[in-house]
Design a protein around this nucleic acid. Structure first.
Lengths: 235, 235
DNA sequence: ACAATAGTGTCTGTGAGACAGTATCGA
DNA sequence: TCGATACTGTCTCACAGACACTATTGT
């Protein structure tokens, strides 16, 4: 908006900004990666009431002068030391009693990174962060803080779906990767084995060769590829 | 949570609920329907600053004691007189200056209904609501209130995508419908013509015959179908 | 009979699924 | 040479696309 008229200024002065209920707003972060042939998510173990001792998703409270995306980026930076990694907003959770301390609205964000990038930046703050195997956690009946079990289930479901029709899985491997490596990521996310030949045909249009090969393995070396950038994203 | 320990009660009493910034939270509603072979959305024309005279999406402020979904249902009820229609959360919008009066977080919800159901309940409140042709509105450069143009664009994109791989379009026709009618809805949403035979093969598994037929038209009558309920939803 | 719309049969091409084959490394 | 893994060729089958055909009403 450009200039404001006197009428508008008067309106703003008289405007009762307190007439509506107000909420604390948190951004909860689901940072996924692949480690040891498993899908893992970054979590923390709470050392305070409520849910003391339970696993929880890391999160930050949104400040009044930052956007939701900025809060998410800040949280990712604080937890992983990384900036510029892939992230997207997932869903907002607004149950009344989801936090026993006060009414907190949670906007969940999912971010993806390769384990290599995560390891490189593992610094002071990440010592309290844990990489938790998601499937076995969800299969167990371990208590998870707040409504974070449900959020985790939703995020896994979304991730699995998006893998089918987007190139989102590329964010879980390094810049340069081999096709057996990428295929393994797909298989872990989709929870089913894939045929080599079919997999390669499917993603042939999304990658380009680097010219480099794996070295030192006691078998045929594997080509390194990178993601082709000039393709328009479908979703 | 069941019983609370003394330690927990003490913690809650001492908890400074004011330590985090607080937001007004609104639910903005995108109620789509099909009328005159066009996709239309329910909007209102603002009679106050800001964006006086502009089209805006209807919305309600979330109350401190209701969930986001409840607020959405309440808003839908207020605007359309309808309850129990299909709705889903879309996305949360958190730009700092999206409302010049104060910091408002907007959680957008999409709801779908047939024009017939909407017409039946058009009462006192709906007189101020307008059914706006979405495509031509978005094609025009008319100023739309707040960030509602962007929200509308996002909702249209999501709707178009979901039509491809879900049965969401069924919510835009009455309980009982003919296949030419349903096909027209698909064509409007997808913005391209479809082949009769292929369309019918595609949705054959999702519908069941009612035994009734259209009457009175100067051509071959059309079968009425209804949605088959026993199919597991894909998304 | 004719106009108009509803509904069906079928050929084709594309792409996923399945599997068998070839290629290239270290030991 | 052999074990192991990388990579490729090709058959099949399901399904979407395209189009031509038949069916049934009111006038």
């Amino acid at each position: 908006m450009s200039e404001r008229t006197l009428e508008e200024k008067k309106y703003l002065e008289e405007y009762d900004a307190e007439q509506f209920d107000r909420f604390s707003v948190a951004v909860d972060l689901l940072t996924f990666t692949i480690e040891d042939d498993e899908l893992k998510v970054l979590m923390v173990r709470r050392d305070e009431f409520p849910f003391k001792g339970c696993l929880a998703l890391p999160g930050v409270f949104v400040r009044i002068d930052e956007t939701l995306d900025e809060a998410a980026q800040r949280g990712i930076q604080e937890e992983t030391g990384l900036s510029g990694i892939y992230y997207e907003q997932l869903y907002s959770w607004g149950e009344v009693d989801r936090d026993p301390r006060m009414r907190v609205l949670s906007v969940s964000y999912m971010s993806l990174t390769s384990r290599e990038a995560l390891a490189f930046h593992a610094g002071s703050r990440t010592q309290e962060a844990l990489l938790v195997p998601v499937r076995s956690l969800l299969a167990s009946d371990e208590t998870i803080a707040f409504d974070h079990r449900r959020i985790l289930e939703y995020a896994c479901w979304r991730l699995k779906n998006k893998v089918e029709y987007t190139d989102i899985a590329f964010h879980l491997v390094p810049e340069e990767f081999t096709l057996p490596e990428l295929q393994r990521v797909y298989e872990i996310l989709l929870e089913r084995p894939l045929y080599k030949a079919n997999f390669r045909k499917k993603i042939a249009g999304m990658i380009e060769e680097t010219g480099r090969y794996t070295e030192g393995d006691a078998h045929r070396p594997s080509r390194y590829y990178r993601r082709k950038r000039d393709i328009l994203q479908s979703f």
